[in-house]
Structure formats: C-alpha cells, structure tokens
Nucleic acid binder design. Structure first.
Lengths: 230, 230
DNA sequence: CCAAAAGTGTTCGCGGTACACCCATGC
DNA sequence: GCATGGGTGTACCGCGAACACTTTTGG
C-alpha cells in the first residue's frame, strides 16, 4: 500500500483536453460527465493523471482514447494551470491540451455517442467542474488566434469540403462575418487548396464544388518563408 | 525522513526560466552555472522545484530571485517539457517560462554580476545542461512570434529609448534588417509612443530623441479591437 | 572639418475591402 | 417555377516596400 515516498511533497500532475468539433452550425466542445467525486455528475474535460512512463502528450492521447474514445486528432499543448485550490482534494497541477476533431469522421461520432459523453456548443456549455470553464476559454482564445496564421482549421473539416464550409469554420472560430467573394479570392490565392472533381451531395440546391487542403504545398511554401494569414 | 507518501508514483515538477536581455549589440540569455550534479559546472537555466504552496508563476519568480537576483521582469509561461529522460536522476516535468529583463536597470545588472551568473549571446551559448538548449530555442521562437503582435519588446528597453534602439531590438529579435524610414513611419503611426523632451547623452554624434511607450494608449486601442502588427 | 548617426518624403504596386447579380439544382 | 445557396468581377484606397540625402553634434 502507498509505496511511493519522496523527500519533499509533490503535487499531482494531470492533463486535461479541450476537444473542438465543428458541426453544421456550431463550434462544439466534447465533455464527459464525472462519475465520481469531486464534482460528481458535473460535466468536465476529459483528462486524468500523468503516469511516470509517459510524456504529457502521450498522457493526453491516452486519456482522450480511454475516456472519450477519441483518437487520431490534431493535438497541441495549451497551458499549465496551477492555482492552489483548483482541485478540492489536494494540489493538482494540470497541463491543458486542445484537440481538433473531425466530426465528419464516423469513428469519432460513434465513440462519442456513449453515455456520459457529449458535445456542447461553445456558447451553451453546462456548468463545468474544477477550473475547466477557464481552460475552455483559454483554448478558444488560442484557437481563434492560431487559426489565422496556421493551417489548422482543416483539422475540423472532412478531407473534402466546400468553400462555404471553410468560410463558416472561420466565421465560427473568429466570431465575425466574412465576405464570400473576398474570402474565396483570398483563400484560393494562397494556393493551398486543390479543386477535386467531386461536389456536395444530398443538398436540394446547386451542389458546391469540393476542395482538399494540400499539405505538401503548404510545407513547400512555409519553407520558403511564406506567411499564411487569413 | 522522507515523509511524503502517495498511492501512485509522482513526477517531480520544476520550473525553468529563459531570461532575455538586450545590450548594445546582442540579444542575451541569462544562465547560471550549476554547483551540484547532475551537470555539475555546466551552464543551465535558472529554475528549480515547485513547492506545494505556490503556483507555477510564483515558483518561477521565486527561483529567478533566489538563483539570479532577478526581480520585476515581464514573465510569461512558455511550454511544459516532459521527455522521460530529460533529467538523469528521475522523472522531472518542467514548466518553462520566459522573461524579458531591462539590462538598463542597474539592479538587474548588479544582481547578475555574481559569480556563476552570466549573460550569453543567443548565438554564442555554451553547452547547456538537461534539455535547456531546446527550451531556449523554443523561447526564442515564441519571442520572435509574439514581439510582432504584442507590445512586449518595450520590456527589454529602458523606459526612455530612441527609435534606433527600438529598431535594433526588432532586428535582433526577428533576425532581419529593417528599413529605417519605413520602421519609423510605421511605429509612429501606431500612436503608441510619446515623444519626450529628452535626448540621448554621452554619444559623440547627433543625439537621438527619446520616446516612451504609452501603455494607456495601447490598452485603449486594444480594447477597440485595434491590432498591432509590426 | 570630419566622423557618425539622426532625421526626413515620395513613388509604386499589391492586397484588402466594399459591393450585387445571375446560375444551377432539387423539389 | 420557386426556393436555396453557389459562384463570380471590379473599382478604390491604404499600406508596405524601395530608395538617398541633409542635418546635427562631439571631438
């Protein structure tokens, strides 16, 4: 029992993940309902304690898989939170991550269909456990800032998407309206998208052309000192 | 002895600080020489273990004061590093910070005049302990990125500075040359600087006008959705 | 008077912004 | 044929980039 002994007191170290997903109308966050105290039954970010044989990134991916069934997402470290009283049990420092999941991916949809896992609109979050509301706000700030100069928005879209979908993504993340013609001109002039020969299906109006993001092109341009800015 | 016992193994939690300073010709980093193993006698970032009664920010400031005599600096959390083997003794996760110090501040100069504390040019660093070279590189990247859209460069300059000093700051941080006329036009058009009635002294050529950064003006503009970009 | 850096304006071209109508499709 | 969103072009303006000479000062 309790065999781990140290000369000085140690904080517990945890990771928590803000997983963003984009549906037809909203930018959403994945939450799980806690089964045990503290904050039993409250909604919280997926996360948990870091093991000694894994890095923080590995811990974040493991918790995402275990607690929410989420795998193969874009994942990036966000910030470390360390208020003395952020966990009522004892001193816990958490390293927060944010992830971008493709809600179009059926594996993600299926996995997060479980009891106690839910997607909530960013403006419609339930009361969250711990300081998780603060972490979500920080993640949204980071996403809003980063989406403008790094090609990460595509991580929220299906592999093939219409320009209208892409524009809606930016509008939702940035919280502003964008002009359709100017947006298209700008995004196409960056020469990062490739037109496919597919079009939207299942819509009862003219079907939109689908594009895909060409990571090769992006990396080639980035290497030349090209600066993305949307 | 060794009275702290836990049910699960815990990593030790540390903070490390990359302190930047600007002198007449270089962007420098503050290092301290280790007195004890591991990496005895090697140069390293100031830092140390986090206590249970302090936040990460507090730990960073405490270590800066204790190990390097540095106080009253701009301080910002950088990133958390967690490779399994980054410390040969045991598992240590470190939360890195970066700080911007005014080398013009005599208190800073005096404190860092001690044995075993030194300022090193970014391109002229000694071999560093642990993964500290990697941390310094990450901090430089962050500074390079952030200085362009946030008014943090001023934290490296004296309260009153010439436009040439400011330009040299940007050139050193960004690693590029800037056009004098364009730089002045741009920076003055932002309406963040106030001309003072002082001029440089002790130079044997025409003395430059000194300016100061007006934080009030910046905050007022920032609140209006103004976007800095240099 | 000489060395050194301060200070100053104009031109050009690109990219951002504002703005409205016709087209294709499914029902 | 109608509702719905897809798709397209132009004019204007402001900002970034390129570029060189005169002024001031101390020694």
């Amino acid at each position: 029992m309790s065999p781990y002994t140290y000369e000085y007191a140690r904080a517990a170290l945890a990771v928590d993940c803000v997983v963003f997903g984009l549906d037809e109308t909203d930018l959403k966050v994945l939450l799980i309902q806690r089964r045990i105290p503290p904050f039993q039954h409250a909604w919280a970010l997926p996360g948990g304690f870091v093991r000694l044989d894994e890095t923080l990134d590995e811990a974040a991916r493991r918790e995402l898989a275990e607690e929410a069934g989420v795998t193969d997402v874009y994942l990036e470290q966000l910030y470390s939170f360390s208020s003395l009283d952020r966990d009522p049990r004892e001193r816990v420092v958490t390293v927060a991550y944010y992830a971008l999941a493709k809600l179009s991916d059926h594996r993600i949809r299926a996995a997060t269909d479980a009891m106690g896992v839910g997607w909530f609109g960013l403006d419609d979050l339930p009361k969250l456990a711990f300081d998780h509301a603060h972490i979500v706000a920080t993640a949204h700030d980071r996403l809003r800032g980063k989406v403008r100069y790094a090609p990460i928005g595509f991580e929220l879209l299906p592999p093939r998407f219409s320009l209208t979908q892409l524009q809606r993504l930016y509008e939702l993340v940035l919280g502003t309206d964008l002009d359709k013609r100017n947006f298209r001109k700008k995004i196409l002039s960056l020469d990062l998208l490739v037109e496919t020969d597919e079009v939207e299906t299942g819509v009862r109006h003219r079907a939109a052309r689908l594009y895909r993001f060409d990571r090769r092109k992006y990396e080639r341009l980035a290497k030349q000192g090209f600066e993305l800015s949307i």
